[in-house]
Design a protein around this nucleic acid. Structure first.
Lengths: 333, 333
DNA sequence: GAAGAGAACATTAACGATAATGATAACGTT
DNA sequence: AACGTTATCATTATCGTTAATGTTCTCTTC
């Protein structure tokens, strides 16, 4: 018979079976010190009565909520969304529920999200900070709650983090374009304050040097303003640039339309390569050539690291660098 | 001084201020029966000590977790992702955290997700069931937990739901294509078991009738198989179909590439209209003509309805039908 | 000036689960 | 036969918060 709350509790099952609450609890968690017979009887009865464990009560006592938070920019960005999807799957597989918190790329909101996660007593946090100097991170570090930084590198030996081999990704793009015959390349990025941006460009540059191209043949342009990007494109066209490396696929798509708005064609006038290989995970229109870093692998490693940190808070910070591959599609000639 | 857990509790603040736990609790929640002076003193001290409310303990006592769950197919589908984004924003605004549960369009997993939500004692659930006869829904109904169905209609007077004016959406698409000069139209959908599909086609058909077109000029085709869809397209081309209505934008994008694989061009050979207007919310490549139903409005209404249900379980089921508009883009001539 | 009304704070008892011990019976050991 | 083991289950004390009452004390009011 369910209690007043309408939900069946351990006490209800205890009364119905004649055992104590504690025994029922242990039986349902398959802990030792329970005879096989009692265990099965209790589990059967609990199932019959429709018992579902109250994680709130469980969490208060045990100190673990079996919940992790993901703090990202926005689910409107398919990169974050796909990542959230695989993280949720992986979390569920391990008995964790996932709380999603979107900062909308706003530092103040990011702090709010950290506070929300903390007040909800999550066991751990996966976070993709908006910038490399996000104030929210100080908050998080000070809280003592285990966390893993995704896709950002915030300094040598501070936090656990999982990110892909950015430098090699940039290198692969550069080499691919050069092998396709391009001799003058440009990288386009919305923001250059990120570690990722610098690393990707480093690799891009390395590919150029390796092929014997002078450094001035590997150009870098940064802007979020469509009009300015258009000016970049027109200038580059005049200067003989034929290969463009977009910081990521989402930016690449925006740039594709700008390129076409200028009357240029892809890949005839510009070959375009992106990053993240979102086309490989979602049925989006306009698949583009891109660098792949398995989302699944990232999610698995991130949660692994987080659980490791939860159980061993004393270990030194760990960095996981994931391998990347280049996926060729027809945005390149 | 923080307790052993490392986190500051009400007790710590109580000791530091000389009041009891209860008084501190009331002060921090701005409840009555507290003098203005003590209230401010307590709040100040709590802030200084870095107190953050333990929602787990709070939830256990009050019976409310201030958490809602969203059960959707997958975040890899931008439709769900964008919806999740606005829902998270709206939830946060009202002090709720959001738990994301993806069923991966698998009925069994959907049941798992309902159970996860229940065991986490969420205050309410927003659910987009995979099908109109989802077994998970029975589970959810039986639980007594407030919930609102999104984007599905599961029968006249059972559940609360929020969905857009599907029929009118289909009608707008039909009228738009006919006004653009098309005389033979087809609707393409992956699944026809959904209420939405039937309603959209009804509206589509109504537009045709209103324009005096015979019913056989308004064709319906259903398939998830790319090869079969290609056969549809080729046959329709021969039959003189020039306007295609895709069930939703995500399917539309897949169909765009199939159309081009057949050697047909857009919009010269086929005008294509989608549904959901995802292009209006995300910087995706290839914006298409589509029916818009404000995500923001849907999220707001859904959470409103849910909160209403939480506070008034006795009210009769409510249905909210959201208005739709057609957004014209160049996938149509 | 006695009764009543507030204001402001304290006490007590949960919420439902689990960790840490206790207790009991059955059994083997020497 | 006395004692230790082991298996199995029970008791007790929280976890941190909040709802429901109690308790003072001051201030009216007739």
């Amino acid at each position: 018979m369910p209690g007043k709350s309408g939900r069946v509790t351990l006490e209800d099952v205890a009364k119905a079976t004649g055992f104590t609450i504690n025994t029922v609890s242990r039986a349902l968690k398959n802990k030792p010190d329970i005879s096989r017979q009692t265990c099965e009887a209790i589990q059967k009865k609990a199932r019959e009565m429709g018992y579902v464990r109250n994680y709130i009560a469980s969490s208060l006592r045990s100190g673990r909520t079996k919940t992790i938070a993901l703090i990202a920019g926005t689910m409107s960005n398919p990169f974050y969304a796909v990542l959230a999807d695989v993280i949720q799957r992986e979390a569920f597989r391990l008995g964790y529920s996932l709380m999603i918190l979107c900062s909308q790329d706003d530092p103040e909101m990011e702090t709010n999200m950290v506070n929300m996660a903390l007040s909800r007593q999550v066991d751990g946090v996966l976070v993709i900070p908006w910038s490399d100097q996000s104030p929210a991170m100080e908050q998080l570090r000070g809280s003592g709650v285990p966390f893993v930084v995704l896709n950002r590198f915030l300094g040598e030996d501070r936090d656990d983090c999982v990110l892909c081999d950015e430098e090699n990704g940039g290198y692969l793009v550069g080499r691919h374009l050069i092998e396709a015959g391009h001799r003058k390349l440009a990288m386009l990025s919305h923001r250059d304050v990120l570690f990722s941006t610098r690393q990707r460009f480093q690799g891009f540059l390395r590919a150029g040097r390796e092929a014997g191209l002078p450094d001035e043949n590997i150009i870098y342009g940064q802007s979020t303003d469509p009009e300015e990007i258009i000016r970049f494109l027109k200038r580059w066209k005049e200067e003989g640039v034929t290969g463009i490396f977009s910081f990521c696929d989402v930016e690449a798509w925006e740039e594709l339309s700008l390129i076409e708005r200028c009357g240029f064609r892809i890949p005839e006038d510009f070959s375009v390569v992106g990053f993240d290989n979102i086309s490989g995970y979602v049925a989006f229109p306009r698949p583009i050539c891109s660098v792949d870093c398995s989302f699944q692998e990232e999610a698995t490693q991130a949660i692994d690291l987080l659980r490791n940190r939860i159980h061993h808070p004393e270990l030194p910070p760990q960095h996981v660098i994931l391998p990347v591959t280049l996926i060729c599609r027809d945005s390149c000639r």
